[in-house]
Design a protein around this nucleic acid. Structure first.
Lengths: 202, 202
DNA sequence: TGCGAAATTGCAACCTATGCATAAACGCAG
DNA sequence: CTGCGTTTATGCATAGGTTGCAATTTCGCA
């Protein structure tokens, strides 16, 4: 990791990232071209693709890390811990990990969230990442809950994430603050855990 | 709707659709270019965009119809019908509507499903449509279940759709047939309705 | 038959993305 | 400190999706 070479790579990556984040925030995602980002980072346009596979990738750098955080929580299931408790813990760990990033990542997160609500391309990408990670969580669940078959585990993960996402989405569409969205996500989780039938008599 | 002009438009649209479906099936989605589709339909490449906003759009023609089917079921809630029953009916109505299309649409549906599992661009588009429709369902649910607030309705819809989708996805990844995927989707629904906590003691 | 609207088309341009070859930068051994 | 091999950066060319604009054709209707 030391060596002039490695440090320069890190610096270039960061320069591209900072330039992209700044320009996306200033003038929007679609309006910002790869050429502009490269110019702002003082590299050739072609070089951008040596660091990021696509324009969208800039905003979804740490997706795998997020999944890893969740996988770790699942792997650390406490003996006899109910599924709902484990998944709630998983969500809280995810929120914590989002808040614990360094400054640049920290700036990235709200920007990404904001752009995902407005830029179709980014929403699509985010959804894809979200879907593709869920079978991994399901597999991990099967490991620690031997009584679960893969389909049931998938349903559990999907129900959990879906409730979380759409509850948050609705809250956001109603003009809620970030805290409102978060709180709504928690409510969604609760509903998924208790089951939709629990909504009937309330 | 009569008139030479209108009939020709319909015929051209259909020619483009048939050409696209055939070529997508024969040589894959990415490998098929707009130019090829237009050539097969005997129109200029530029004309393609007079009928479809994008290449992906060819495969997602009736998305709004599907949502309408589901909205209709929700609007027709039977007095006192539990939420879970209603949503299950909604799912079955959706499956029926997919099977009840004319031949071309009928050919479209399995192709779209297959391609959505292999072509990232199409998966992304399908997910976007799926997400965007869910607040509509949630809103409709609020109408017929006055005790539901918007966030709870969103959570219900998200939990339902998420469980359905991921259970089906897992089944598909395990090499299941279309019937297996469908059956797994139903199981996912059941799990969402009963709640994740119901999975603990089973 | 001829006018006006709508559809089709060709053309140019922009952007993302990729492959390939070359040049530059770098670390290391001699 | 100097040359060598490897990485890294870059330039060039190209493919393909998408849009805007203007010209042209087609069609309905008076």
């Amino acid at each position: 990791m030391e060596g002039h070479r490695e440090r320069k790579k890190v610096r270039t990556r960061r320069a591209l990232l900072e330039a992209a984040v700044r320009l996306f925030g200033e003038q929007g995602y679609e309006q910002t071209t790869i050429a502009e980002i490269a110019a702002a980072a003082d590299v050739a346009p072609r070089t951008f693709f040596a660091y990021f596979a696509s324009k969208e990738d800039v905003l979804f750098l740490h997706a795998e890390d997020r999944w890893q955080v969740m996988l770790d929580v699942i792997a650390g299931r406490k003996p006899g811990e109910p599924l709902g408790d484990l998944l709630s813990r998983m969500f809280e760990a995810l929120v914590r990990s989002l808040a614990g990033d360094d400054e640049l990542d920290f700036a990235l997160s709200p920007l990404r969230t904001r752009l995902m609500f407005t830029e179709p391309a980014l929403r699509a990408r985010g959804l894809t990442l979200m879907l593709e990670g869920q079978p991994l969580l399901a597999e991990a669940l099967c490991e620690v809950y031997p009584e679960l078959d893969p389909v049931a585990a998938g349903a559990a993960v999907g129900s959990f994430m879906g409730a979380l996402a759409v509850a948050g989405l609705v809250a956001q569409q109603q003009g809620g603050s970030n805290e409102d969205v978060l709180a709504s996500g928690r409510r969604g989780i609760e509903i998924a855990v208790n089951g939709l039938s629990s909504l009937d008599g309330s």
